[in-house]
Nucleic acid binder design. Structure first.
Length: 729
DNA sequence: AGTCCCCCCATTTTT
DNA sequence: TGGGGGGACT
């Protein structure tokens, strides 16, 4: 068989990885080394050369985006649809299993996915029911606790029944939460994985079937797997299964949400015998950028070890700009991008990366000031938007009356005179009779347990839902969606809000109708002819599992802005990393533990390796944070890059921010207006005891003048100009 | 039921 | 500094 189309475009290491004997394989794939390509080509190799049936292959990713990208690339390479192959996210695959085996998994046939927002709402309600003080036990923290347990594979029954107040409270809550989910057939994200794992353990026959079916398992971004994902894979692979994992321990940046870097570090032992292949040739960056990245990451301990190289050019040195403050930093970056654009390059090719979202504001303002188009990644995605969630809640109730989360969301939205007292009544009934709130409402209305008005309003709402269901039985999904947003009164509700916001909400609702239509076509293509009810349920699952895109309009040539985390996997010719300062990056919340610091360093490694041609690292002497001025030193990460690869960008003599920042003022304060030996803002100075620093600002005049200096060694200080004995450098 | 005000908080994000 | 959430007030 001709395999040239699979192997031709590959380098030696890639080819080795693609053609490695069927068995356990760890591909340690550096940034920009062709990781996805190897995965895709290996799948093609297994099918076309090893004779593995597509249905024998399971490919796992973390995000829907990479799953669909992989699916597309496999189909392109094979030249035909993937057939029986399973390609999806951990959660998507777990969901698929649970839908197929809901009985064995101990679930209701109509179980629904509880996303984070509904999960949080449920926890808040439980805290109230349990009469726990929400000040002492913030719902967010409780949610965090529960998810953390599930990520570790722990149910409430696994936890100790003693311990301190915190442990006992969390245990009580966790138990109540599990009961509430079971009662209403809700499955949260962690539960999908946990149940799927338990499904293996509790049903040996089923496990055996899947172990024989999936003889080849491939996992992307393996360094991001958490304990339960790892356990799930391990059980499935069993003693016989062959597993190929691809990842990069140096790009493990999600430890804080349960990812275990140990999983990749110990793979070759845990899955022995296993082959290790390193992909170190980089096709993205200049050698300068790669050297910097290599050197930086070499400060981490316990690495599997890997050194990126390129046969490309050396490129420009890495520019380091020390700004006075965050405004200066932003302006500098905008300046550089303007120059780039003037040279005929695209704004699309530029990205500004930052450690925390709060940093985006200043940058945005600088962009707006000069009218430069930009796009910020992050924020709410389509199915996370309020209006979409509201509309989807109606659809969910149509599919499943016992969906308490959906019920609570829309029972009084738009307002239909059902107040908190009525709702509390219903909740109590539901709890006491161990039924869903919908069922409680039915009983309450039937037995006259509510006031006349409340009963009428609740009855009206239930009629509406029933009516929607009747309609849905006989109409296409997108028509149902359209009917819902009109009949429910959601349109009027959002219209009332007025303004630009209302417009965009209404547009989104229309878009939801389109999304439903698109889903129908997609579903019809995949599974023959699903019934209306099946399509409806499928659409609801899709919305929960795949929140959709953050932004729809991507046509304008605009500068990209995003956090370092969300930049993983992307590449840009021109990269700026802003706020490379101690306390911000590495962030002070992570800096006190070695693991935290090393993860920050990996994050920096990720940032650097995004750059193809040119990299700027920026830091500011002073930065306004939470309303107050902070002084910080350049990040240690800058120093960890060899000096010969860096180039300091000289600070400009003047900062044109506000008048108080005009250069001459410091000199004036020194009693030497217009002097050319005087100090200006940004000037480097030496103090006999504090050492070297930079002039930041000054106040007052004559003998009372005070100068603010950010010293390298001791940080920000105000000094009386007359006594400061400063020496200009 | 809706608005307003005050207080508190403040990495990183996918499913 | 600013946003979000919760409580109190109209």
């Amino acid at each position: 068989m001709d395999v040239s189309h699979i192997l031709n475009s590959l380098n030696d290491a890639q080819r080795q990885a693609v053609t490695a004997d069927s068995g356990n394989l760890l591909v340690l794939a550096g940034a920009g080394s062709g990781k996805t390509r190897v995965l895709v080509h290996r799948i093609a190799w297994l099918i076309q050369m090893e004779g593995i049936a597509p249905a024998g292959i399971l490919a796992v990713t973390f995000t829907n985006k990479s799953a669909s990208e992989m699916r597309g690339r496999i189909e392109t390479l094979l030249g035909h649809p993937i057939g029986g192959m399973w390609v999806g996210t951990f959660h998507g695959l777990a969901h698929r299993l649970l839908r197929a085996h809901w009985q064995e998994a101990g679930l209701s046939e109509k179980f629904q996915i509880l996303d984070s927002d509904d999960q949080l709402r449920l926890i808040k309600r439980l805290l109230q029911t349990l009469e726990l003080d929400e000040g002492k036990w913030p719902a967010k923290q409780c949610q965090w606790f529960i998810n953390q347990q599930k990520d570790e594979g722990l149910r409430s029954t696994h936890l100790e029944h003693y311990g301190d107040d915190y442990n006992r409270t969390m245990l009580t809550l966790y138990q109540a939460y599990e009961q509430a989910c079971d009662r209403t057939g809700m499955v949260d994200f962690g539960e999908l994985l946990l149940r799927a794992h338990e499904l293996w353990l509790k049903n040996p026959g089923l496990l055996d079937y899947y172990q024989h079916r999936f003889t080849e398992i491939l996992v992307d971004e393996f360094q991001d797997t958490n304990a339960i994902q790892y356990a799930w894979l391990r059980v499935l692979a069993g003693k016989r299964g062959h597993i190929t994992v691809v990842g990069d321990d140096d790009q493990s940046i999600y430890g804080w949400r349960g990812a275990r870097i140990e999983n990749i570090q110990q793979f070759t032992q845990d899955f022995a015998p296993a082959t290790l292949i390193k992909l170190e040739q980089n096709y993205r960056s200049t050698s300068t950028i790669l050297k910097a990245a290599n050197k930086l990451i070499s400060n981490n301990a316990g690495r599997l070890g890997k050194e990126l190289w390129t046969d490309g050019t050396e490129g420009e040195p890495i520019s380091v700009y020390g700004a006075f403050n965050e405004q200066d930093e932003a302006r500098f970056i905008v300046d550089q991008i303007e120059q780039w654009v003037r040279k005929g390059r695209r704004r699309d090719d530029c990205v500004i990366l930052y450690r925390s979202n709060a940093q985006s504001r200043e940058l945005e303002e600088a962009m707006l000031r000069v009218g430069m188009p930009y796009r910020i990644y992050g924020g709410f995605r389509f199915y996370e938007r309020l209006e979409i969630r509201n509309a989807m809640a109606y659809l969910r109730l149509v599919a499943n009356r016992d969906d308490d989360a959906a019920f609570e969301r829309v029972i009084n939205l738009p307002v239909r005179g059902i107040g908190n007292a009525t709702l509390e009544n219903l909740r109590t009934i539901a709890r006491e009779q161990r039924v869903s709130v919908w069922q409680a409402a039915q009983r309450a209305v039937a037995h006259g347990m509510l006031g006349a008005r409340a009963a009428q309003n609740v009855g009206g709402f239930m009629n509406l839902i029933n009516q929607l269901e009747e309609y849905s039985a006989e109409h296409e999904l997108h028509l149902v969606m359209d009917y819902i947003i009109k009949q429910s009164g959601l349109i009027q509700h959002h219209e009332k809000e007025g303004g630009e916001k209302a417009n965009s909400r209404l547009e989104n609702l229309e878009e939801l109708v389109n999304a439903a239509k698109a889903y129908t076509m997609e579903a019809n293509g995949n599974n023959g002819e699903p019934t209306n009810a099946e399509r409806l349920a499928g659409f609801i699952d899709k919305a929960a599992l795949d929140a959709g895109d953050a932004q729809a309009d991507a046509h304008e040539d605009a500068v990209q802005m995003m956090t370092l985390h969300s930049a993983k996997g992307l590449e840009f010719p021109l990269v700026f990393i802003a706020g490379v300062e101690e306390g911000l990056f590495p962030h002070k919340m992570s800096g006190d533990s070695l693991e935290g610091l090393e993860e920050e360093r990996r994050l920096c490694y990720v940032g650097i390796t995004r750059a193809m041609e040119k990299l700027y690292l920026c830091h500011a002497e002073s930065r306004r944070l939470h309303g107050e001025e902070n002084f910080s030193r350049p990040s240690r990460f800058i120093r960890e890059i060899p000096a010969e690869l860096r180039q300091e960008v000289r600070m400009k003599g003047q900062v044109s921010r506000a008048t108080s920042w005009q250069g001459g003022i410091a000199a004036q304060a020194m009693g030497a207006p217009d002097s050319n030996n005087g100090l200006r803002l940004g000037q480097r100075v030496r103090h006999p005891s504090f050492g070297e620093g930079v002039v930041l600002s000054c106040e007052g005049n004559g003998n009372n003048a005070r100068i603010q200096i950010n010293f390298d060694a001791v940080g920000g200080k105000w000094l009386v100009a007359a006594y400061a004995r400063l020496e200009a450098l």
